[in-house]
Amino acid sequence: MLRLELNDLLECGFELSLTGTTESELSRLSVGVGELEAMPELADGDRSPYRNMTFILYGEQWDIVERAIARATKPREPNNPNRSPQGNALAAICAEYLERVS
């Protein structure tokens, strides 16, 4: 909330130094930094092979996904570098789904 309020003050031309907030605090809060229109592209060599995904689930979707992941979670296979059993389970569920609908 503080970041939003400080950005609003900045947009109105208010001198932020009058708030008593230091430059390093403003920087940490990303005050004065505009939103990105798109994520910057990384060179292939700079991208980690591990990637995060975030989902928002509604109502019973949470229970369905949780049950499917619990059922699909298996001990990690020796050749699988991913240590996340949930990530491995989700990948297995998606692979099986794609095989069925293809």
Rank of each mutant, 00 (worst) to 15 (best):
L2H: 05
L2Y: 02
R3I: 13
R3Y: 05
E5P: 05
N7R: 04
D8S: 11
D8F: 00
D8M: 03
D8W: 00
D8C: 00
L9F: 14
L9I: 12
L10M: 10
C12W: 05
C12S: 13
G13E: 08
F14C: 13
F14T: 15
E15K: 07
E15D: 15
L16N: 14
S17T: 13
L18K: 14
T19A: 06
T19F: 05
G20H: 08
G20F: 06
G20Q: 06
T21A: 12
E23K: 13
E23L: 10
E23F: 04
S24C: 09
S24V: 14
S27M: 11
S27A: 13
L29A: 09
L29Q: 07
L29Y: 13
S30C: 09
V31Q: 02
G32P: 04
G34A: 13
E35K: 01
E35Q: 09
L36G: 12
A38R: 06
P40H: 00
E41H: 01
E41M: 00
E41Q: 03
E41F: 00
A43N: 03
A43D: 12
D44E: 11
D44I: 09
D44H: 09
D44N: 08
D46I: 00
Y50K: 08
Y50N: 10
Y50W: 11
N52E: 14
N52S: 12
T54P: 01
F55R: 00
F55Q: 00
L57P: 13
Y58V: 15
Y58I: 15
G59D: 03
G59W: 02
G59H: 02
E60H: 07
Q61W: 02
Q61I: 07
W62Y: 14
D63V: 04
I64Q: 07
V65F: 06
E66S: 13
E66H: 12
E66Y: 06
R67A: 14
R67W: 05
A68C: 12
A68G: 13
A70I: 09
K74A: 09
P75N: 01
P75S: 02
P75D: 02
P75V: 01
R76I: 04
R76G: 02
E77D: 08
N80E: 14
N80Y: 01
N80C: 12
P81W: 03
P81H: 09
P81G: 11
N82V: 15
N82H: 05
N82D: 15
R83C: 12
P85Y: 10
Q86V: 11
N88D: 03
A91W: 00
A92E: 11
I93Y: 03
I93K: 00
A95P: 04
E96Q: 11
E96Y: 00
Y97P: 01
Y97M: 06
E99L: 03
E99W: 01
E99I: 06
R100D: 15
R100P: 06
V101S: 06
S102E: 02
